[in-house]
Simulated assay, not measured.
Amino acid sequence: MTTINSHVHPQDARTTPVIVGPWPTYAHFKDLPERERWVLYGSAKAYREALENQGFVMAESYRDFIARVCRELNV
C-alpha cells in the first residue's frame, strides 16, 4: 500500500518519487539505554517527515513505520 503525502497533489502522484526500501534498521540499537533509544525514535520520525516534506512518498505506511521502529528499538 502506498501512502501519499498530503503535500503531494494527486496530479503529481504519478511523478512523485516513491521510496520502497530497503528501510534503515534500528535493531542494532536495541541494547542502548532507553533514553538513547527514544532519541533515535524521534530522529527516525523527523527523518521520515523531512523526506515527505520534500515530496517523497513512502511505500511503507506511517503506521507500519512506527510499529517497525518501535519493535526494532524495543520502545
Rank of each mutant, 00 (worst) to 15 (best):
K30Y: 04
H28D: 10
Y62H: 09
R71D: 14
E34T: 06
K30P: 00
E52F: 05
S6E: 08
G42N: 11
L40S: 02
T2W: 00
P10R: 03
V20Q: 05
V75L: 08
V75C: 07
W23L: 04
V69Q: 09
F56W: 08
M1T: 04
M1E: 13
R14M: 06
Y47G: 01
L40D: 10
E34M: 11
R14E: 13
F56G: 04
E60T: 13
E60P: 02
E72P: 08
G42W: 00
S61D: 14
L40Y: 00
S61C: 06
E34N: 05
M58I: 09
E36Y: 00
P24H: 09
P33L: 02
A44L: 02
T25N: 01
E60Y: 10
N5H: 11
V20F: 11
Y26K: 01
F65W: 13
R14N: 11
I4E: 12
V39M: 08
R37T: 02
R63I: 03
R71E: 13
E36R: 10
R35W: 15
Y41M: 10
R35G: 08
T25L: 09
T15R: 15
R71Y: 12
W38L: 11
H9R: 11
E60A: 11
Q11V: 13
A44D: 06
V69Y: 03
N74P: 07
E49C: 07
I19M: 11
L40R: 01
F29E: 00
L40I: 12
V18C: 05
R48T: 05
D64L: 01
K45W: 01
Y26T: 08
A50V: 14
L73R: 03
Q11S: 15
K30E: 14
K30D: 13
T3W: 14
W38I: 07
E72L: 02
Y62M: 01
Q54P: 11
R48Q: 12
D64V: 04
D31T: 15
V18W: 00
Y41D: 03
N74K: 13
Y47M: 05
V8K: 04
S43W: 15
A50M: 11
Y47V: 04
V69L: 07
E52M: 06
K30T: 10
R48K: 05
Q11D: 14
S6K: 13
N53S: 07
A44G: 07
Q54T: 04
R35T: 12
I66Q: 09
F56N: 04
T16Q: 12
H28E: 15
A27E: 15
N5I: 10
P24Y: 08
T2H: 01
A27T: 08
E36V: 02
S61T: 15
R68C: 09
A46V: 09
S6Q: 06
G21N: 04
D31P: 04
M58W: 15
Q11M: 12
G55T: 01
T15M: 07
E49N: 15
V20D: 11
